[in-house]
Design a protein around this nucleic acid. Structure first.
Length: 284
DNA sequence: ATGCAGGCGCGCA
DNA sequence: TGCGCGCCTGCA
């Protein structure tokens, strides 16, 4: 049974910016320009209509609460953008370009596996692999005549062997995902404890112990699933854009980029990263 | 067609 | 500790 939640007079909400800025893999554009996606046990369609955002879909719990949490609706992005725009003109410029970006509050388990898969990979292929994994091991949910699949839990994924993952197209990441699943089931990885850890340095240290998780992936998990807005994931695009804008186009090493970002953008560096990434990648 | 895509893990100084 | 290199795969 479908539920519906209408957000009136939205500020800083643009579906394209939110779903195409590289933070998520399970949202797809429909023919009517709305987006449909899966998160937790929810299948939601997001429609923008004259000064309204209409969230509708299948939701076990209350759709309003689920959307407020997932879309970070209680966070004031107008304030965030004002603060960041004052830092420098490059950032101000990129914020103008992606002014409807919001950082989604995504599920930790799904984010962990998704970003292990993202290593040395491209977005279309990452999306394909995640869909195949969900179809094979997730739960089926019907919505408006189409079939969707939830992202599988650790228990559901434990059905898969290394070979199964290889067949789904994970390539050399098969062992990493397999071991991460096993480690989680054996309590070698404690998702609840990770979720409640406030200290970013401790959190990073813990995440780096997980197979397939290096600095970049750890930062993405902290930013996209654990709301650590101060972390600054450095991928090739971010490295490029920072080097171009602030280092006279001389390629800097990730460590230098990190230090620069912390100094330049401070506690909201992760947000700055999203605006810069979205702006620069769209140029290419 | 060969290089590349939102890195990681390993071996070697 | 800090580097360089190989790696599955699909796509241009």
């Amino acid at each position: 049974m479908e539920q519906k939640y209408v957000l009136e007079n939205p500020k800083s909400f643009n579906s394209t910016h939110i779903f195409e800025c590289g933070q998520c893999f399970r949202w797809n554009k429909e023919e009517d320009n709305t987006y449909t996606g899966v998160f937790s046990d929810n299948i939601i369609n997001v429609k923008e209509e004259n000064n309204k955002i209409i969230f509708s879909g299948i939701c076990k719990k209350d759709i309003k609460n689920e959307c407020i949490r997932y879309f970070d609706l209680e966070n004031n992005y107008e304030d965030i953008k004002d603060k960041l725009s004052k830092i420098d003109k490059y950032l101000a410029n990129s914020i103008k370009y992606g002014d409807g970006i919001r950082i989604l509050h995504q599920d930790l388990w799904e984010t962990l596996i998704s970003f292990i898969i993202s290593a040395n990979n491209n977005i279309p292929r990452i999306k394909t692999i995640i869909e195949r994994i969900s179809k094979q091991y997730g739960k089926k949910i019907e919505f408006r005549g189409k079939t969707y699949y939830t992202f599988p839990t650790p228990e559901e994924l434990s059905e898969a062997s290394v070979e199964d993952f290889r067949k789904l197209g994970l390539g050399f990441r098969d062992v990493r995902v397999y071991e991460t699943v096993q480690k989680t089931l054996n309590n070698g990885i404690n998702l609840k404890r990770l979720s409640s850890e406030d200290n970013v340095d401790i959190l990073r240290e813990e995440l780096l112990k997980i197979p397939g998780v290096g600095p970049k992936v750890a930062d993405c998990i902290m930013l996209f699933a654990l709301k650590k807005y101060q972390v600054f994931p450095v991928d090739v695009w971010v490295r490029r854009v920072i080097s171009e804008l602030y280092f006279e186009n001389e390629e800097q090493k990730p460590k230098i980029i990190q230090e620069f970002a912390k100094k330049q953008y401070g506690e909201l560096a992760g947000l700055a990263q999203q605006y810069l990434f979205y702006w620069r990648r769209d140029l290419a």
